[in-house]
Design a binder for these strands. Sequence first.
DNA 1: CAAATTCGTTTAAACGTATAAACGAACTGC
DNA 2: GCAGTTCGTTTATACGTTTAAACGAATTTG
Lengths: 335, 335
Amino acid sequence: MSYEKRLRSPTIKDVAEAAGVSSATVSYVLNNLNKVTPEVDAHVRRIARELGYQRNRAATALKTGRSHAIGCIVPSLVSPVFPEITQAVQLRAEEHGFATFVIDSGGGVQREAQAARTLFTHGVDGAVAVLSTHSSITDPPLFPLVAIDRQIVGLDSVQADHHTGGRLMAEHAFALGHRKIGLLSGEQDLASSRERRDGFLEGARGRLDIVWDIHVPLLSTLPREATRAIARRKVSLIACVNDLVAISALSVLRKEGIDVPSEVSVIGFDDMQWSAWPLIGLTTIRQPLAELGRRAVDLLIRRLDEPKSEIENMVLPVSLVQRASTAPFPSPHGC
Amino acid sequence: MSYEKRLRSPTIKDVAEAAGVSSATVSYVLNNLNKVTPEVDAHVRRIARELGYQRNRAATALKTGRSHAIGCIVPSLVSPVFPEITQAVQLRAEEHGFATFVIDSGGGVQREAQAARTLFTHGVDGAVAVLSTHSSITDPPLFPLVAIDRQIVGLDSVQADHHTGGRLMAEHAFALGHRKIGLLSGEQDLASSRERRDGFLEGARGRLDIVWDIHVPLLSTLPREATRAIARRKVSLIACVNDLVAISALSVLRKEGIDVPSEVSVIGFDDMQWSAWPLIGLTTIRQPLAELGRRAVDLLIRRLDEPKSEIENMVLPVSLVQRASTAPFPSPHGC
DNA sequence: CAAATTCGTTTAAACGTATAAACGAACTGC
DNA sequence: GCAGTTCGTTTATACGTTTAAACGAATTTG
């Protein structure tokens, strides 16, 4: 514990003294409370600027209980989707005058709880979070909390319209003429994976033939069962629970010497930024990631201002982005 | 401003009262100062746990000037490399008992200064940062600051050994039998780009023929000049300033119908996580990104503990990762 | 013209914690 | 058995800010 205190920077008292007024006056000016004469106001502001005064948030936080900081808990910063959400969260928070504590929870339930406690002792006013399916930090939450990409009882939430996204995939497949379909669904305990699959099945009902439907983990390597199914060449289109899985499918196809899209089309979900690379060119369903982050912050701010307002569960629209990985079937040029 | 204060949680005084001791005693216990009898110690801890006491960092920060929080400024969270650094920073900070304020500065000099001010008013004890070449926040820094991936006078720093990395590229090219080389260097005002290029030139001297050497911006689209040079097919290996540029080169080659690696080899720099995808399989120079983040935090903590210690500029080793994008030349199987 | 009202400013107390200083009890040693 | 020492605990104050309350001067009102 042997180190210097932070550089002593001018306090409100220093400003008051230099301006020849009381510290209360300075506080009133700096908080724009319109309680002082224009001349004094201008004078105080000038002195404050000259002295390079910076408000000490710790003191403010202690006195008012508000820190003007929010937390943002994500399962991983090294991921195709969360950084984009996080970036948007931070930017929007800044627009509202809030700083952001980002915490990479690693995805576990305990670590999420730990993250929440950390945020609490550091006095955040609230947080937005991408939580695991059954998180323990919600009951009771230590502070106002907005769930992203999940709906959790008692919390405001924002998520993409996974169901419609699934349906769009099916409609796109049908419109291109595909009939024999392979499905790489995610584990069905995750609501978003389930909804995507349900949406697809709804869009497929009566007109698409689901030849196989394999539940795979959301990783970049596919289980044996999946690679075998792909190699068997019984389908002309593979619909995947997300882009990461779709890219794994692409690489299996490549290894098997099956051309995309002339022999098999592939469609993903998320539109993570690398899906747009020409080298990959994945047709996919775009989630409005940045918008999710922004809306989450807006909901949080609203909850802070009006704690009693009704809980809101937002669902944002998704859209199909067509790229090089899907093509009409049967292929006009033949194989 | 019409909302409730944070849920009142038990204070040190509540604990003191419940335990039948003074608040000072509780403070001594909670800070592990070994000033109280074992019985009292145990008793206080039990009560604190029972009441669910959580230290109010704002009060601590106000009193001691230490917040146990650090900042982490990066140019962008949506990037192939910074999230990995950020993640490591946060994890290591947590091990040291520090929370992390992450700020996406957007890369501009002003915004970096703004970020630093934000961190300052929120009372961070210090920060690690990936700064733009000539940042204005360094003089004088508002708090201890460690530079990542750049060396800045007066600051501790951690960076990868770009020069050796460049040399490794050249040696790999030579060892595979390549002689005609194309270089996609970065803009030379960035030190790391310059060092990578210098290292390559040193490794190439007298044995590799640099057919062209184009300075490109570090984006995922190449300038016209570069795509033309690639299409002209005068080289058998293209060495790129980073993986993003390398992947752009790969996609130009693909479009031109030039096979990789049998006709042209490509080598990148960074080893961002998507370079390892089978679909891409980029040979590259690995930067120890996580290690950069961890070391930066360690340096920062050290500076906090020993403000007078000598400034340290760490250089971490890099290594070659061979994947599918490079092959011997001339190709043993012919074209 | 005295009393009441308004307005701008100051005084003073609090937020929760850390810690120097004061305190008192239990030892030590002669 | 008493001065000196040690040790565990408490008292009291400060950190920088906010804000209710007090204050006094200027203005309005009856």
